[in-house]
């Protein structure tokens, strides 16, 4: 396979990684730590929102992020024919 295709594959991979890591940082560090106090003013059910992001939300979203990455990369691997 020619090098430019491979470079394109690698750059798409990096784009996915950067986007997903932004979400990773957003739910844990931004919503769960930096803005926890203002978010705690909002309640969902009995959970103050900031507290929920730190206590439960981040963990659940982390799991989803990994499976989204797996899905995106499987598609990308096939498209660029680099799969095993």
């Amino acid at each position: 396979m020619d090098q430019s295709k491979l470079t394109e594959y690698w750059h798409k991979n990096l784009t996915y990684v950067v986007i997903l890591l932004c979400i990773w940082g957003l739910v844990s560090y931004v919503l769960g730590i930096i803005f926890v106090k203002p978010l705690n003013a909002i309640s969902i059910g009995g959970f103050p929102l900031g507290f929920w992001f730190a206590n439960q939300g981040s963990e659940v979203i982390f799991v989803i992020l990994i499976f989204v990455y797996v899905g995106l990369m499987s598609r990308l691997d096939r498209k660029y024919d680099v799969q095993e």
Binding site: W24, S28, N55
Partner: peptide
């Protein structure tokens, strides 16, 4: 209380880094 969340996030968030940046 809330402060304990640092263990919950800290000991799970590393797996996202593993999956995206290291393991493959």
């Amino acid at each position: 209380g809330y402060t304990g969340s640092m263990y919950l996030m800290g000991w799970t968030g590393g797996y996202v880094l593993l999956a995206l940046l290291l393991a493959p």
